[in-house]
Design a protein around this nucleic acid. Structure first.
Lengths: 233, 233
DNA sequence: CGCGGGATTGACGGATCTCAATACTGGTGG
DNA sequence: CCACCAGTATTGAGATCCGTCAATCCCGCG
């Protein structure tokens, strides 16, 4: 199947067959990471970029007591630069990744302008998501933080075709969601129950169902950030 | 006097006289913004970059009830892209800025590689700061958030020569600090009192004094993020 | 079959918010 | 020059959201 990275980039800019081939050429330095282990350790600095081919990952930092703050969930097709030593990347479930040298990526962006445009837009969406996370953590209550997180993940998963029959295979645990929303696992559970009894969203086993996305999004005032329509330029 | 933008960029990479001249050439589209008004309104998208020449600014987003979350303080020499419609930029005090076209900036980075390196490092530090903010908001208590914010601003102000006689002219109000740290102005005040009675930091009038930076940084486990030494490449 | 992590729920405590009152400060207009 | 005023700083008392602790249940896995 077409790698998710291509499916994602094509939502941001038109790619020719040559563009796509050159992107795929970059992905030969692959690695498999076991579930619940670090793909990139804390303290590492590198100019490389990690690209998620399959599975979910989380970029996170630690503070005293070992408390963890996830700053970004990485889904298939997502990528992240590895130049921040305070941030590590952990596999949520079994993970397939590629590591790309900064020079190779820069060369590709130079030689394939449309790929450069797509990557720039992906980075823009990622930065907007980080601003939105800070705003949520600082100024929203627990229900809104959880609701927005679910909407965001649902929307991103939908964009890469991960939603089947109105259901999403969802490898995150409630402790994971707690580390992203700045809450405790106990309180995440309470909020999930509230959404469940209100018929908005349900998490059973490892699958997520949002019964009425529009209603949930309206209730928590979620607005999606990415500008992703197959671009025109 | 040398613009702060040059003083800042030279901490990230060596710039020749020609490099510096070309940077200054970009700054002719200047504007003055009155205190407590928006330099860039919410909802605006642009591919331009704003560069702070003098004064302090805040990038922020709003949520319901008009609650505000500041995602970044911009000091003289700092810059920010304007491509996120959910984020506005407000002048804290009287502000002098320059707006630079994306194309002009891209051309400069291409023609002046050292300027490109410096700008990339500045952006890297900015993104690291955003991750650190999210981590603070999600996982640290009020005292640590305030303490780290003061250390960060102190360190950045020092880097551009804003600290005189161990004191920093500090235009932020306690409501501003509250909007950055995700607290209320009342609680910011309580934390500032605690730091004051412990002899660590003091905010009187519009000036900040950190009596023992090392001790404050240790107490709140602040680690500065930027890689700024005058670079060697 | 036992074990460990996750999910779920209740009771209690605490950090932070809200409301409220007072003092201070810089700027404005008479 | 002074009175005024809005925004800010400061402090206290009570309310609330969320965390902590603890128990139970469930499930996948060795």
């Amino acid at each position: 199947m077409e790698p998710k990275i291509l499916q994602k980039l094509r939502r941001f800019a038109y790619l020719s067959r040559d563009d796509m081939n050159d992107v795929e050429q970059l992905l030969h330095h692959r690695r498999h990471i076991g579930a619940r282990t670090d793909a990139v350790a804390l303290g590492k600095i590198s100019r490389d970029t990690i690209i998620i081919l399959g599975g979910w990952a989380a970029r996170y930092g630690l503070v005293k007591d070992g408390r963890r703050q996830i700053t970004s969930f990485l889904l298939p097709g997502d990528h992240s630069r590895l130049d921040n030593p305070e941030q590590a990347i952990a596999a949520i479930n079994h993970l397939d990744v590629a590591f790309v040298r900064a020079d190779d990526l820069a060369a590709l962006e130079r030689d394939r302008p449309q790929v450069g445009v797509a990557l720039a837009r992906a980075r823009l969406a990622e930065e907007a998501r980080l601003c939105a996370l800070a705003t949520s953590l600082g100024r929203l209550d627990a229900e809104d933080r959880i609701g927005r997180t679910l909407c965001d993940l649902w929307h991103r998963a939908d964009a890469i075709g991960l939603i089947r029959d109105g259901s999403l295979h969802f490898p995150l645990t409630q402790p994971d969601l707690a580390d992203y929303t700045g809450l405790t696992a106990v309180h995440v559970n309470r909020m999930m129950r509230r959404l469940r009894v209100d018929g908005l969203a349900e998490l059973k086993g490892h699958s997520l169902v949002i019964h009425d996305y529009a209603e949930l999004a309206a209730r928590v005032e979620y607005r999606c950030t990415d500008t992703g329509d197959t671009a025109r330029s």
